[in-house]
Amino acid sequence: MTYYVYLIFNGDPVHIMEGFLPAIWCIVWFAISIPVIALGIYKLNKLVKEKREILPLLAVAGAFIFVLSSLKLPSVNGSCSHPTGTGIGAIMFGPAITAVLSTIVLIYQALFLAHGGLTTLGANVFSMGIVGPVLSYLIYKAGMKAKLNFYFVVFLATTLGDWATYIVTSTELALAFPAGDVLSFAGFLSSFSKFVAIFAITQVPLAIVEGAVSALLFKYVIEVKSDILVEMHVLEDSVVRKIRGLSA
């Protein structure tokens, strides 16, 4: 038993371990996540049909999630944890498509690494593939509207999206395991603060590094392929010219 409790975190606050949500909560999170994944698949098909030239960019966004979520880095309290890498996909393609990309990575990790799980897939997709990317996307749009520095906005969107993922994971765990065994607001809060305390220390530095690396990847994409980002309304032409002017 202790072994399994330890495995949930296995020092990894990103995903909830296989079997570690009561059945009812597994169903709830699947019920919320499946429509979003379906919407994502629909949008993905439409986008690929209309603009085949985005496929390589899609591969880049997916690959970035693949790389970052495999980087288990040691963190302050002695446990390991890893970044999510979903910010790039959210900014380029929106949250629904990012949910699809995240699902692929989560299934890989659940099947081959016993990392996360199939019963908890719905909950993990909800935190990593939906809430994080939605927040990243919103922050990105708001930041660009406010005409802040582009790289700073990417950094902010990715970092906060990453934190949101952990806060949601904590929420999911606290809802399933409220203090006092019965779901009450006080019980929820007590459990939530316990889970969040573990995650906060681990995730704060990691998310900052993730944000910085994401901004750097964006720089390279803009250098070689800015036209497609303009076409997809990710960036305005004037912003590209400004960035080019600054970095030229």
Binding site: Y6, G11, M17, N77, P178, S191, K194
Partner: peptide, 27 residues
């Protein structure tokens, strides 16, 4: 740094008093 820290490990056990049994195991 192997994740053998027992601080996070015990949280669910502490909350539930060790009564929770996982509903599934990794395949």
């Amino acid at each position: 740094y192997g994740g053998a820290d027992d601080k996070p490990a015990g949280v669910i056990e502490q909350i539930t008093g060790g009564t929770y049994k996982p509903i599934a195991n990794p395949i």
